[in-house]
Nucleic acid binder design. Structure first.
Lengths: 110, 110
DNA sequence: CTCATATTTGGCAGTTTAGCCAAATGACCA
DNA sequence: TGGTCATTTGGCTAAACTGCCAAATATGAG
């Protein structure tokens, strides 16, 4: 199955979503939103411990990928997760990491 | 739950794995390997349609993240997927894309 | 040993990303 | 209207990522 244009488009679309999560801060934001529900930028900024402009940009990346949506309430903006299956993501990633850890152990044991 | 050092490490480890998949070619490689089993670099290169050195580098990225492992057979190197749950990944990503498509429709319908 | 094949690696140029500060925008209140 | 507060955006620099070519490495065949 050689990659044609349609295939290429498919994987580019998927990559845009994955890329949106490919940053520790953004993974934290997704995790936080999935566990505790909607949060405003100010709360998230405090949790992350970075400049608010930085957090705002990370949230914009997640939004552009369709992973979160925002809602303005007064002068605050609340972000919430748009898709719930992201938790499965984390489970899978953890299993990769666990597998890596086991391999590491095996190497050290020699 | 403010991000402390341990938390930060956790999300950085996860991000390394996600980042390894954050590229259309690498997503294709993972998908191909999960569907058709072990493949040598030469086969994958033909499927991708890029320089072999480029494909080799992509495979090295996947390997460094622990997503694939390689095995040398003669002068060829075969790569295979190390963790099976990656398919769930794709399902989730597709559901995000489907959600995006619906929103897009809704916007156009106005 | 010599040649051919398969793969990896060095190095370079162009593009993208990250994070901060400062400035702009938007909403609320007095 | 003027002043805050919450958030986003412009602009800049440093770092990371990509893809190709060319060269190096490794394996097998004759």
């Amino acid at each position: 199955m050689i990659m044609n244009t349609a295939q290429r488009d498919k994987y580019e679309a998927r990559a845009r979503v994955v890329k949106a999560m490919a940053h520790p801060t953004r993974l934290f934001l997704v995790d936080e939103l999935s566990q505790s529900g909607p949060r405003c930028v100010c709360e998230l900024t405090e949790l992350v411990g970075a400049d608010m402009s930085t957090v705002s940009r990370h949230l914009a990346v997640l939004k552009a990928a369709g992973l979160v949506e925002d809602e303005k309430r007064g002068q605050m903006v609340f972000y919430r997760l748009r898709v719930k299956c992201v938790m499965d993501f984390f489970d899978c990633i953890e299993s990769v990491l666990a597998c890596n850890a086991r391999s590491q152990q095996a190497l050290l044991a020699r």
